[in-house]
């Protein structure tokens, strides 16, 4: 399912991973995209800026926070939820 949110999130991830947007697939994981913890922090920052939301992401426990970053689809879903909550 394609949405404006999904496209924007994939663009942000693609820019950070230095990949083409087409290479950032819903099932891609951060590891597969070559994104380390600092890159994830930059992606979260860019997402917050792009959507004017606050993302509950703690780099100490990236997998424990409410913001699911296990793959691209999960990140998109989490961003959509945050946007809906703040709308």
């Amino acid at each position: 399912m394609s949405s404006d949110t999904e496209l924007k999130v994939r663009e942000i991830i693609a820019e950070q991973a230095v990949l083409d947007v087409d290479e950032v697939k819903p099932e891609s994981t951060p590891e597969e995209l070559g994104l380390d913890s600092l890159s994830m922090v930059e992606i979260v920052f860019a997402i917050e800026e792009a959507f004017d939301i606050t993302v509950p992401f703690n780099a100490n426990e990236p997998n424990a926070s409410d913001f699911d970053i296990s793959n691209v689809a999960a990140i998109v879903k989490a961003v959509e939820a945050l946007r809906a909550a703040e709308a």
Partner: peptide, 10 residues
């Protein structure tokens, strides 16, 4: 100046 509430993460 810009009144934003977040700075660059690094």
């Amino acid at each position: 100046e810009e009144g934003k509430n977040r700075v660059h993460p690094f």
